[in-house]
Design a protein around this nucleic acid. Structure first.
Length: 525
RNA sequence: GGCCCCAUCGUCUAGUUAGGUCUAGGACACUGGAUUUUCAUUCCAGUAACGGGGGUUCAAAUCCCCCUGGGGUCACCA
């Protein structure tokens, strides 16, 4: 039997990071077993703006390198893959259920149903459907239809049944059919509801494994019954824990984004993301991009490998020690029985550590390509940089070394891409390191002479020259380095100092020093 | 509230199915130290957990029961 898994997103305009994890596990299970992974679009409220709504979802899959064997754009033998286009399948299934008495038209008014529900709640009894319409003869039903009486189609839940499944992650789970309400499976106009459409589609698509988040566990007994009534082979179910918000156990949700912004666990991520997004000209506070969405990580400059690694380790482990895993490694090792049962909070810190690892695994060329793209988009270098500019980027990437965790980090090294007149000093640090210390400006002047006179402007000779000066004056390096760094880069921290000087070159360094000295003097007076 | 699920360091987890090898392992985060005359990296060290109570057993993180706590879901949404 070929394993067939599916992910069935509704087109919402963005890809949720938790949904992505569910999709990943489905993909993994299919690939691990040499089966098929299917993308079905659950667009029941007919497709308006489908490009806008579906595009970001497919983009997320493409970015992470998760391919689908059947679905939008690629087709397949069991199509169509948009639920809205599968109506004839749903109609036929509905008719068969109605014909054999497994479902019935319920003419009870919604208000009556609601009142019964509330009554039951008040009396602390179990609410089950009244089934007042079940006893109606075919003629009576037809008469009501002819009289335009409103109705819905409900599935007639068999009484006295224990419905049990062997969930691949949870084990044996059981429900009592006597406690179940007859679910509405279609509206009066015949349009199917989720539980019904899903079962019809899963059956027709020959899905063998339904791997989904645990919030769907409570839908399972209805779906099992529907599969039975339709004569489908029952798929294997695996309910994986949902992805929780950092620090908590609640489902990660787009609506709570403002709360996350204040959460300490999210602090570092937001700081990084806000900075990068702002430099790219995207307003990070309007929440059009947030850490709940896959696209956020791409925009900030994460690697697919980093995100994938973090997602795979959220609720799954290979063994007691392996942390850094490629998609291929995970794919080969993936089993459902190693999926954890409890909800797992997304840990931005850990995500960042996976990311940093995969960034360090990248070749120099790959880093340069990624950084150049971000620099272009931030307007720091031309859109199509020439070879000379790319060499420059490569040199900065080398200077950045492991300070580069995400591609967006390169944007905070803007001092290497602007000239002295555009250079902005960190105001607070400038006060502290250059303006305040009494001797700073004089020392800077001395250093200027050294830089002007040194024979070859290389990191090594620069280091020796400055060092000689420091020793000759019986100073400490720390008395001069911070002021020098700030004058040259405008920042209090950054890449190694002397290589930075060498990279910028003598003229640029002197110009920056002059600017700093001038600025400090004017502020002192 | 009904139904269902879950419960090991702050976090992600190993260990639970086949009880002993667990004075509970790893990773992230955090703290301290070394290296780096910034920052980051790297290295070393440290803090830190079986929710509680009953059983069963020679032996329980592991099996059973109860409690507590957390969560999901209760639509003519998906």
């Amino acid at each position: 039997m070929t394993v067939r898994t599916r992910f069935a997103p509704s087109p919402t305009g963005y890809m949720h990071i938790g949904g992505m994890r569910t999709a990943l596990f489905n993909w993994l299970w299919a690939r691990k077993n040499g089966g098929q992974f299917i993308l079905r679009i659950d667009d029941t409220d007919a497709g308006r703006n489908m490009d806008e709504a579906l595009g970001p979802i497919l983009d997320a899959f493409r970015w992470l390198g998760l391919d689908w064997d059947e679905g939008p754009e690629v087709g397949g033998d069991y199509g169509p893959y948009f639920q809205s286009e599968r109506r004839s399948l749903h109609d036929a299934a509905l008719k068969s259920l109605l014909d054999n008495g497994a479902a019935y038209r319920d003419f009870e008014s919604p208000d009556d149903t609601k009142a019964q529900r509330e009554d039951a709640e008040k009396n602390k009894t179990v609410y089950v459907s009244s089934r007042t319409s079940v006893g109606l003869s075919a003629e009576e039903v037809q008469a009501k239809i002819d009289a335009d009486e409103a109705y819905v189609v409900r599935f007639l839940v068999p009484r006295g049944r224990k419905i049990s499944i062997v969930d691949q992650v949870r084990g044996h789970v059981e429900w009592d059919s006597d406690l179940m309400v007859d679910p509405v499976i279609a509206r009066g106009d015949g349009s199917p509801l989720y539980n019904f459409a899903t079962v019809v589609d899963d059956g027709q698509l020959k899905i063998t494994h339904v791997i989904r988040a645990e919030e769907h566990l409570s839908n399972t007994p209805i779906q099992v019954l529907l599969h039975e009534a339709l004569g489908n082979d029952l798929p294997v179910f695996a309910h994986i824990p949902f992805v929780a918000a950092p620090g908590g156990k609640k489902k990660l949700s787009k609506r709570d984004i403002d709360k996350y912004r204040k959460s300490p666990a999210f602090q570092k991520l937001f700081q990084l993301g806000d900075d990068v997004l702002t430099r790219l000209g995207i307003d990070p506070t309007d929440n059009s991009l947030s850490p709940v969405m896959v696209a956020y990580y791409r925009e900030v400059g994460f690697l697919p490998a980093g995100v994938l690694n973090a997602l795979a380790r959220l609720g799954w482990s290979l063994d007691d020690e392996t942390e850094n895993m490629s998609l291929e490694t995970v794919q080969n090792a993936f089993t459902l029985d190693r999926v954890v049962k409890a909800a797992a909070g997304l840990d931005p810190d850990k995500l960042m550590s996976y990311q940093a690892y995969w960034m360090s695994e990248l070749s120099a060329d790959e880093k340069v390509a990624g950084c150049a793209d971000f620099l272009s988009r931030a307007g720091l270098i031309p859109e199509s940089p020439d070879a000379e500019m790319l060499t420059r980027v490569a040199a900065v990437v080398e200077l950045a070394a492991d300070r580069l965790r995400v591609f967006g980090d390169i944007l905070s090294m803007d001092e290497f891409f602007v000239s002295s007149d555009q250079l902005v000093f960190d105001e607070k640090e400038f006060q502290k390191r250059v303006v305040k210390p009494a001797e700073a400006v004089d020392l800077l002047r001395d250093v200027r002479h050294i830089l002007a006179d040194v024979e070859s402007f290389s990191a090594e000779t620069l280091h020796d020259a400055v060092n000689g000066f420091v020793e000759g004056r019986e100073l400490k390096f720390g008395q001069i380095a911070p002021a020098l760094r700030l004058s040259i880069t405008g920042k209090a921290k950054g890449a190694d100092l002397f290589p930075t000087l060498e990279f910028l070159g003598r003229d640029e360094c002197l110009a920056r020093l002059d600017k700093a000295i001038g600025s400090a003097e004017s502020q002192r007076v």
